Amino acid sequence: MIIITGANGQLGRAIVENLLTLVPTEQISVSVQNPEKARDLEQRGVRVRRGDFDDAESLAHAFEGASQVLIVSAPRLGEQALRQHRTAIDMAKAAGAQRILYTSQMAANPASPFAPAPDHAATEEALRESGVAFISLRNGYYASSAVPLLGNAIETGEAVAPEDGPVAWTAHDDLARAAAITLTKGELNGITPPLTGTEALDLAGVAEIVSEVTGRPIRRIIVSDDEFRARLIANGSPEAVANMYLGYFAASRQGAFAHVDPTLARLIGRPPMTLRDVVKVTLQMDK
Rank of each mutant, 00 (worst) to 15 (best):
I2H: 06
I4D: 02
A7N: 09
R13N: 01
V16D: 03
L22M: 13
V23H: 04
P24D: 12
P24K: 07
T25G: 00
Q27K: 15
S31K: 01
N34P: 03
P35R: 00
E36K: 06
K37I: 03
A38M: 01
R39M: 07
R39N: 14
D40K: 05
R47E: 06
G51A: 12
G51W: 07
S58C: 08
L59Y: 09
H61I: 13
A62E: 01
F63A: 04
E64V: 12
S67Y: 13
V69L: 10
E79Y: 00
R83T: 10
Q84F: 03
D90M: 04
M91L: 12
A95R: 01
R99W: 15
L101Y: 12
T103Y: 08
S104E: 05
S104P: 05
S112D: 04
P118K: 07
H120D: 09
T123M: 06
G131I: 02
F134P: 02
I135R: 01
L137P: 02
N139P: 00
S144L: 07
V147D: 07
G151S: 08
G151V: 12
A153Q: 07
E155A: 15
V160D: 02
V160C: 05
P166M: 01
V167C: 03
W169Y: 04
W169P: 06
H172S: 08
A176M: 05
R177G: 03
T184D: 02
G186S: 09
E187R: 15
E187A: 07
E187Y: 08
E187M: 12
I191T: 12
L195A: 03
T196L: 01
T198S: 14
E199D: 09
L203Y: 09
A204R: 10
A204Q: 13
G205A: 05
I209L: 15
V210I: 11
S211L: 09
V213R: 08
G215P: 00
R219T: 12
I221M: 11
D226T: 11
A230N: 11
L232Q: 14
I233N: 06
A234P: 13
N235E: 14
N243C: 06
M244N: 11
G247A: 06
F249R: 12
F249E: 03
H259W: 07
H259I: 14
D261F: 03
T263P: 06
L264W: 04
I268A: 09
G269L: 09
T274N: 08
D277P: 05
V279R: 03
K280A: 11
V281G: 00
L283R: 13
Q284P: 11
M285H: 07
D286L: 15
D286N: 14
K287A: 13
